[in-house]
Design a binder for these strands. Sequence first.
DNA 1: TTGCTATACCTCGAACCTCGATGTATACCT
DNA 2: AGGTATACATCGAGGTTCGAGGTATAGCAA
Lengths: 118, 118
Amino acid sequence: MTKKPNPDYLNGVPELVVLQLLSRRPMYGYQLLRAIEKSTGNVLEFGEGCIYPILHRLEHEGHLASRREIVGGRSRVVYRITAAGRKRLHGRAAAWQSISAAVNQVLHGADDGKSAVA
Amino acid sequence: MTKKPNPDYLNGVPELVVLQLLSRRPMYGYQLLRAIEKSTGNVLEFGEGCIYPILHRLEHEGHLASRREIVGGRSRVVYRITAAGRKRLHGRAAAWQSISAAVNQVLHGADDGKSAVA
DNA sequence: TTGCTATACCTCGAACCTCGATGTATACCT
DNA sequence: AGGTATACATCGAGGTTCGAGGTATAGCAA
């Protein structure tokens, strides 16, 4: 029981992916969910309960702006990234690369810390 | 205030790093803390309140085994990885690489999800 | 008309993890 | 005597993801 379906490593990743995908073109939430799955070959699959709160928060913080659209009776909320959002994206992407590189360094050889402490 | 010192992306990373470093040679907690800093050029800096609980949990799960050592009056608990621990390490490392690759794919071009949903 | 699926939004609580503070104790150097 | 480094440990706060649940329209088939 209590088996973990997702092996972690995902902290902060949803926000990063959302910002990155919206930096290419505006999208609405449901579309974003599918786009994330498609663009990662179903490796990353975030639920709605994960994405919607992030969209609300990013908009509230001024990193995204939204516009309501009605298509075939269905209401959509289309989000686009703002200048502040791009700035945040760059920062988060840089942080990701820094951490990603550090982990890979530990994983693939490059020991160093050999004689750390006596 | 309430500034976040660490920009996330770190979920599960401490355990992965601990397993990897201990797979090279046995170490004790304090030594591990320094080794992590050194081998990542101070990019990854986990506190004691993060590492010690992980060591206890991994030992309890059978992924690590410990042995008490007294050196110069100071007591050390030296941990070494078990066969089960190596298995876990391989699994976690594979998961990391899968997720890492997916995020990088989203970050650097390779769009795809273009016409996801109508 | 009824039911099912897909679309499309939203919210809540449970579970998990990291972080910083705090506490104990010994060794070494000044 | 006091400060620093070593060495272990625990706790609560804070933040995040996940899964379940809720609302509503559109389209198709039985």
